[in-house]
Amino acid sequence: MLGSIITPDLFASALRMATPLALAAIGGTICERSGVVNIALEGIMLCGAFAGVAVTLAIGNPWLGIIAAMLAGVAIAAIHAFTSINLRSDQVVSGTAINILALGVTGFLMEIMYGHPGTTEAITTIKPIFRFASESGNSFLGTVWHWINTIFLSHTPIVYLTILIAVVAQWAMYNTRWGLRLRALGEHPRAVDTVGVSVLKGRWVAVLMSGALAGLAGANLTLEQVGSFTENMTNGRGFIALAANIFGRWTPMGSYEASLLFGFADALQIKLQIFRGQINIPSQFFLMLPYVLTVVVLAGVVGRAVGPASVGKPYEKG
C-alpha cells in the first residue's frame, strides 16, 4: 500500500497545493516586513479567485482572468493599506473586516451575476506548460524520467511563476535598496523616516504587492486547480499562509519551503482518502490534517519565532 501512496504524483500534487499558500505567504512576508500585519490574505485570495473566474467566464480568456485576479487583490489590499496606514486602525481588526467583506462581496456578486449562491459554472482550466510522455516501470532510466517529469514538469504556469517569485523576492529583500528599506520599515520606521524616505509610501507599496500576490494565489486556485468558484473556497488558506510566513521566519524562500510542507500535508490527506476503505479512518480526520499541522508547527517545532519589531504598529510622523 505504501508504494501506491508514495508515488510521483503525490509530490507533484504537493507542489501544486503549496502554490497558493506560498504566494499568499510571500505576500504576507513582504507586508509584515514593512510593518503591516495582513490577516486579510484569506479575503484577498477569495476576491482574486472570484475575479479570475468572473472575467474568464465573461471574456473567455483565463490570462485576462489572472490579471483581473491580481488587480482585484490590489484593490482590496488598498482598503487595508488606507485603514491601517493612513487611518491607523488596528491592523488585525481591519484585516478581519476585509475577510468578512470578501465573503459578502463575492457572495453578493455571485447572486446578482449568476442568479444563485454556491458554485459558478466551470471554466476551462489553464493547462500545464509541458506535456512530455513518460511511463514508469519500463526501465530504470525510464522510471527516473517518469518521476522527474511528473514531479517537476507537469505543472501549470503559476506554479513555476511562484518559484521564480520566491527566488526573486528573496534576492531582492537582501540585495536591493528596496529590500533594505522594506526590512528597515518593519524594524525601525523612524530611522527610515529620518533619512528622508516616506514610511507611508513604502508600506503602501508593500501592502499592494501582498494584495497582488494573494490575488494571484486565488487565480491559481480557480483558474489552474479547481476550474470554478465556490463561496468561501479558500477555506482558511490565508491563515495557513500566515503560519507559513512565521515558520519561514519572515523570508520569501522560508515561506515557500514552509508552504511546501503544508502543501505536502494537503496532498497526503487527499491521497490517503482514496485508501480510506482500507485504513478505516473517517475522511474528516484527513481533512483536519493541514490545520492540525499548522498548530503543531506554530507550537514550536521551530521554537520561538520573532517577527519584525514594529509590525502591527501604525507609524505617526513625529
Binding site: 482598503i79 485603514t83 493612513n86 487611518l87 491607523r88 486602525s89 488596528d90 481588526v93 481591519s94 478581519t96 473586516a97 476585509i98 468578512i100 467583506l101 465573503l103 459578502g104 462581496v105 457572495g107 453578493f108 447572486e111 446578482i112 449562491p117 501604525p314
Partner: peptide, 25 residues
C-alpha cells in the same frame, strides 16, 4: 436583495468603528 449584503454591512461597521483615526486623518 441577496442576504449577503448583510455581511457587507457588517464589514463596513467594523471598518468605521476601528477607524478611530478617521477624524484626525
Amino acid at each position: 436583495v441577496p442576504q449577503k449584503i448583510i455581511l457587507i454591512v457588517q464589514a463596513l461597521v467594523i471598518f468605521f468603528v476601528a477607524a478611530e483615526g478617521i477624524v484626525t486623518y
